[in-house]
Design a protein around this nucleic acid. Sequence first.
DNA 1: GAGTGTAATGTAAGCGCTTACATTTTGAAT
DNA 2: ATTCAAAATGTAAGCGCTTACATTACACTC
Lengths: 345, 345
Amino acid sequence: MRSKAPNASGFVPTLADVAGHAGVSTATVSRCINTPEQVQKKTRDKVLRAVTDLGYSPNFSAQSLAAKRTNTIGAIIPTMDNSIFARGIQAVQEELGRAGATLLVASSSYRPALEAEQIRALVARGADGLLLIGHQRDGNIYEFLDRQQVPVVVSWAYDPAGAKPSIGFDNRAAMRTMATEVLARGHRRIAVISARQADNDRARARVAGIRDAMEEAGLDHTNLPVFETNYTIEEGSAALASLISSSPAPTAVICGNDVLAVGALLAAQSLGMRVPQDLSITGFDDIELSTVTSPALTTVHVPHRKMGVLAARQLWQMVTEQVPGDSLRLDTEVRLRGTLGPPAN
Amino acid sequence: MRSKAPNASGFVPTLADVAGHAGVSTATVSRCINTPEQVQKKTRDKVLRAVTDLGYSPNFSAQSLAAKRTNTIGAIIPTMDNSIFARGIQAVQEELGRAGATLLVASSSYRPALEAEQIRALVARGADGLLLIGHQRDGNIYEFLDRQQVPVVVSWAYDPAGAKPSIGFDNRAAMRTMATEVLARGHRRIAVISARQADNDRARARVAGIRDAMEEAGLDHTNLPVFETNYTIEEGSAALASLISSSPAPTAVICGNDVLAVGALLAAQSLGMRVPQDLSITGFDDIELSTVTSPALTTVHVPHRKMGVLAARQLWQMVTEQVPGDSLRLDTEVRLRGTLGPPAN
DNA sequence: GAGTGTAATGTAAGCGCTTACATTTTGAAT
DNA sequence: ATTCAAAATGTAAGCGCTTACATTACACTC
């Protein structure tokens, strides 16, 4: 039996219980919690004592049902398995926390259909706003989002012409810079290990950036070997093995991200190749993993934290002030470490 | 104006709208969604058409307020920064998804006070059950959990005598086995890099395991050097540097986890030491990172996925069937790789 | 065709909050 | 003392669902 006895195990106090206990109305208790400056110190103390006595904590569902506001932001990232998004999302989390909001994170395993599902789930949960990775997504999900009037910020990409404001970096330009570095060292037989391009605009942009650099250098990129695979170390290794056995074998392998690059590096080394003497390898993202291998990975540094903070700030502003929001372009830079050198011959 | 026009941008349909559109009561619509077998095919089709037409999706807050059930499990892990918990949590997520539940993950940054806060937040959000890491926690949080009647499963630890059922491994025994391996190779000057033991029962158990092994080998462990630090690569490196400069310098460094061990390995190498010839280093957890260094890390393998699956399954059973739940002990094993060898002299 | 049991549907009372609006209290100005 | 605006508090109507219970429809049986 759900008796009114305070602290009886199994009894969960409600706002009304607190009100009764303190001898005030429920409205006053609610105000004590949400807008304490609106209630007199004396009353407030009385109420807070009751809150403590009963061990009251508000019911989130009831709160957001009544207030039509959850103070929650949803983020859907492609993966939690490796730390590609970890640092950035951590920054988002901290920045939102500072503003009194909570971040709910879901992952889509790089599957558009699953992402759409997660978006709907997060919206049903009442997310006040959404942080999404990249512009491209399934079907008419943007239409759904517009109908539900949920503010959205796109990150890890930058495209002022996108359907939603984006705060991120130019994947194509970033990778173009890296490819230019590779070409500058004299490499001509280049291969690429990338994520599946079909449903990943960032992967596509990065490959396009490589082609840009080749074109600029007056090279033919029509039969640039591009090996598409999942973002895991093992698959990076497998991709390299298959690439190396092709002829003519590449002297440099440009990878779509650090995880792939580390896989490639490990595979090359276990095949007896010296990196970078026999083969150059480059990554993208500059995550922790890239500093741990020997040699450490030459990669594209991404301002994860800064990006997270700015995206969070903008999204929250869009939510609270009902403003549209702008796109913002952040800079990346090539981090030259140990895996890029001139070709052997 | 929130008109009733279907699909007008900004209009979010409710159950009642669907009911009106389909010419049935709200109860019927609700049943169509939750227990479709209870409504006649003809009516169901009519209702589902209305759902599609209006683009209806249920309001989660209202749903859980009314049903007193959220189908949500909360998990609080110490960190998302590295992938120590990633694989296990991923498995929890998948297993819960299979059962129709959602996992909400929060991280505490290894701070007990923050963990307590997150627990309260998750409970306020209506989490039907909680997955927690390790047994030890702040203040009277268990009392709170009991009062709220929230089922809890502890993981990444095993202690049948704990306040809550635990599904995990015996940290002490696992580390004892590793330490025994180290001692068996002839090491006598051993040092430890650990997480702060004060508020981390797993770290404490692991250090205790080392002492157990020493005692068993007839060694004095009273002045075993234990360096406590945060779980980051950098701090692992710093710890090693400081340990090495002490005299007599250790011939083997046992680390509380892989992140620390990788940091130590990198630092040792950059100080010009060869591993394992000049110094042996061991880790704990067997995360991806430990296979990537050269040499690869000798570490304690933990059955992450299995642990996640079993913990999820049990927790969900406790939630749905209101049963108490048992503890379960999983096995770990030492993975001998490249960083453990005999001492030089 | 009346009677009966079961399946399908409807009615309406909450779930625990927030908040517009109404009412009371307070305290400064007269 | 009296007045009155401002501040504090109270009242009560929802928010969008679920579900116990009541009602109706339907398919049988005799």
